[in-house]
Amino acid sequence: MKAPKNMEDEARKELEKAFVEEAVPHMDALYATALRLTKNKGNAEDLVQEAMLKAFRYFGKYQRGTNCKAWLFKIMTNTFINNYRKAKKRKEVSIDEDIKPLAERAVALERDPMQEHFGDQDTMFFKLFGDEVKQALEEVPFDFRIVVLLADLQGFAYKEIADIIDVPIGTVMSRLYRGRRILQSKLTEYAKEQGYLSDRVETDLEEKKPTSLDDYRNRRMNG
């Protein structure tokens, strides 16, 4: 076995080894999420590649043994958002509503499909509409889609999601709540179109919001 030529080589090898051990195992998770962010395979591959190479460049700054998965997702999410902005600048028109400010795209929810539990039928959506779930997800605006993916596909905790997308936990909660319901109402529409659900579904027009953890805790303290 050859001795490393110099300290630099040795340090580089160490870094490569640590990266392969800590970061590379998350590549599949990044890819599965990138597919749903970019909406096609080629772009997903480009995004993962760009994020992984960036992560390697900054890997010296990453503190070993901390939350590598969250760190990688933060890099990938930022990369995606930056690329979107660049694309927007180039075209001078908005590509889709993903890049509109949140306030301009309040999604009107007629009812809350989650509150009209369908019993055994809710797994039906996924069995019948594997591709439709993906398609419906693509129609969910980015800010909501990303939190649903991070929470429900990747299993990140609210605090981790807040760190990844740089927003307060309360914002994570309301986007998650809304994102899930936008997706569910889209799937309900599919189910009705396909005749799997009757048109008559009780509507619950009252706009429900998740209770913030702080509010809940305050009420507990005082009540």
């Binding site: 590549m27 599949d28 890819y31 599965a32 809710d122 797994t123 779930v133 299993g155």
Partner: peptide, 19 residues
């Protein structure tokens, strides 16, 4: 229902491995 939803959502989208 919500637990079911979360589980199904994950099952539907996971398993995509990097080429």
């Amino acid at each position: 229902s919500q637990i079911n939803w979360k589980r199904s959502f994950k099952q539907c989208l996971e398993g995509e491995t990097a080429p």
